[in-house]
């Protein structure tokens, strides 16, 4: 193969990089989805702790959101990657394995992205819960709903509806943050672009294509989120 041109990078042919870049983009989406899913669980508990937890859960949630919003995401990724490896190595040595065992980068990355986005989602859910009209919760209690039933039928759907715009912002942040997971060696979109740049000496072309793919993912998912926001808010009066 002669020195490849720009078209070879985006083509899906035998010499093209299209397939591996698409696989990298898919991995990026998977990391972002896993991260935002982990973050939503943390965010739910965090919001619960801040709204109706006792003084101890509230203090923990407060410390968690303050710390995670004040330190760089890259540091959190290092914590999970190296920290996870240290734990796995210790467990491995306990069972008789020799030497250093590395922690899977995907798990470390998803956990790190999840923990950082969890801090943001805590605030999103807390704000969304405050937007739910107390009368609606009162009405549910008056109908004789138990706490679980009321949460499932009334609180959760109404909170989610108000949380959608905020969650859309968190999603965009998470998608861009997933690029940092490339430092752990997970072959997502940016890492794949790095590999391509290294083996063809066309760094600009590869990073440019990667940037365009990120832009496409964020634009398409943004449009989808807007549409779903519109759909789920059709019962909300505007203006």
């Amino acid at each position: 193969m002669n020195s490849p041109g720009f078209l070879d990078i985006v083509s899906f042919g035998p010499d093209g990089w299209g397939h591996v870049l698409a696989a990298g983009a898919w991995m990026t989406i998977l990391i972002a989805l896993a991260g935002i899913a982990i973050g939503s669980v943390i965010g739910t508990f965090g919001a619960w702790a801040k709204i109706s937890g006792g003084p101890v859960p509230r203090a923990i949630a407060e410390a968690y959101t303050t710390i995670l919003r004040g330190i760089p995401d890259l540091l959190v990724i290092y914590l999970f990657y190296f920290g996870g490896s240290a734990v796995v190595t210790a467990v491995g040595q306990f069972f008789g394995a020799e030497g250093f065992v590395s922690f899977p980068g995907f798990v470390a990355g998803a956990l790190a992205v999840g923990v950082t986005s969890g801090a943001q989602q805590t605030e999103v859910f807390r704000g969304a819960f405050r937007a739910v009209h107390p009368g609606e919760l009162e009405a549910a209690t008056a109908c004789g709903m138990g706490r679980v039933l009321r949460f499932r039928r009334i609180t959760a759907p109404l909170t989610l509806r108000h949380a959608l715009p905020g969650l859309g912002n968190v999603w965009q942040v998470v998608l861009k943050e997933s690029a940092l997971v490339s430092v752990t060696g997970v072959v997502e979109l940016l890492r794949q672009a790095q590999i391509g740049a290294g083996s063809t000496s066309l760094p600009f072309d590869f990073y440019f294509v990667a940037a365009m793919i990120y832009l496409a993912i964020s634009t398409v998912s943004g449009a989808f989120l807007n549409a779903s926001e519109h759909w789920f808010s059709r019962g909300v009066r505007r203006g």
């Binding site: 998608l175 861009k176 690029a179 940092l180 672009a193 790095q194 740049a197 990120y214």
Partner: peptide
């Protein structure tokens, strides 16, 4: 705003 900062740095 639509692309990761790390990609911009690499670019």
């Amino acid at each position: 705003r639509g692309t990761p900062l790390l990609v911009q740095i690499f670019l």
